[in-house]
Design a protein around this nucleic acid. Structure first.
Length: 104
DNA sequence: TCCATGACATCAA
DNA sequence: ATTGATGCCATGG
C-alpha cells in the first residue's frame, strides 16, 4: 500500500529505539542518531522528537547531546543524570565526547 | 502561503 | 578555539 507514511510515527520509533540502545555511561550526538536511522540531515528532527519523548515513555534521552558535547538548554537536570552515570564533564558544563561517545 | 524558530551539523575565516 | 553563515526538515503564527 501507499508509502504515504506519516513521517513521524516511523521516525519516532526509529529514533527512540536507537536512543534506548545507548549504553549507560555513554552519550550519542543528534547527528549520530540521525545518521543511524538513515537521515543524517535531520539531526534537528531528532531533537524535536526527544523533546516529546516523555510522552511516549521513559527513554534515556539525557544521553543525547550535540556534536560539541553541549547539553540540552532548559534542562539543567541532564547534567546530574549524566554525572550519576560517570560521564566526564568539562568545566564549562559540556561533556568529553572523545571519552564517552557511544560507538554504534 | 510565507516567515520565523528550533534539545543540530558542517564549513570558512 | 570562537564566531558567523548556510543547509535541512518540521512546526506554528
Amino acid at each position: 500500500m501507499a508509502p504515504k507514511q506519516k513521517l513521524d510515527d516511523r521516525l519516532i520509533f526509529q529514533i527512540l529505539s536507537t536512543v534506548e540502545e545507548i549504553p549507560k555511561g555513554r552519550v550519542a550526538t543528534y547527528g549520530q542518531i540521525a545518521r543511524l536511522i538513515g537521515r543524517e540531515k535531520n539531526a534537528r528532527l531528532v531533537g524535536r522528537v526527544l523533546r516529546m519523548s516523555g510522552l511516549y515513555g521513559s527513554y534515556p534521552c539525557h544521553r543525547v547531546v550535540n556534536h560539541a558535547g553541549r547539553l540540552a538548554p532548559g534542562w539543567p537536570q541532564q547534567a546530574a543524570l549524566l554525572r550519576q552515570e560517570g560521564v566526564p564533564f568539562k568545566e564549562n558544563g559540556s561533556v568529553y565526547l572523545n571519552r564517552c561517545q557511544w560507538e554504534a
